[in-house]
Structures are given as C-alpha cells and as structure tokens.
Design a protein around this nucleic acid. Structure first.
Length: 98
DNA sequence: CTTCTGACA
DNA sequence: TGTCAGGA
C-alpha cells in the first residue's frame, strides 16, 4: 500500500535550519507559530520540528508579507488555502469529475 | 533550544 | 505592525 508516513508531513528540520531555508530569523518563526500561522510538531521536550509542508507555509508567509499583508491577514489566507485544498480534494474524489 | 523584554524601521 | 537584538 501507500507509504504510511508522507515526507511532506514528517518534520525533519530544526528551527535554525528551517529559518535559514526560508531566509527568516528563528525569532520570526516562533512569532509566526505564536500567531497561529502554523503549528510545527513539538518533540523532544519542546523543540519544534518543521516539515516540508511547514517550510512551504513559511515561504507563503514571506510572500504574503511582501504583498503587504499583515500576520493576521496571512493567517486567514493560509486557513482559506487549506480549506480550499480540502474542498477541492473532497469534490473531485472517487467520482467522474470534469 | 525556549521564552521574554526592549528598541528600531 | 513587523523585525532584530539581547539576556535569563
């Protein structure tokens, strides 16, 4: 069957490596998490573990930030993005869609 | 690594 | 408002 653990959901990066990959400071990533923009998996007594999916979200945050949106607006956009993906996936599921 | 406070653009 | 910086 299909792999039980998708790489995109498995946190493999620490906060410092994730911050460098997205080009942001570690303090910023913690602020985004405090704002509810994303929720990295917490392991090992409180250390954050960022997955490839979280890195993509961090890049989206930086892009929306540059677009002139604030953290509150970005959080709403990210929420709608996830909701849209969920609706789209449920819509064109096991049925002869367009 | 974590959390908080302070100051700056 | 968001980011950077320091200290505990």
């Amino acid at each position: 069957m299909a792999p039980a653990a998708p790489d995109a959901e498995r946190g493999v990066y620490g906060i410092s490596v994730a911050a460098e990959l997205v080009g942001m400071g570690v303090q910023n990533l913690r602020l985004y998490e405090a704002r509810g923009l994303l929720e990295p998996v917490r392991t090992d007594g409180g250390t954050r573990r960022y997955s490839a999916n979280d890195l993509a979200r961090l890049r989206r945050i930086g892009d929306l930030l540059g677009a002139g949106l604030n953290l509150a607006g970005i959080g709403m956009v990210l929420d709608l993005e996830v909701e849209n993906a969920r609706l789209r996936a449920a819509k064109q599921g096991p049925r002869t869609s367009q």
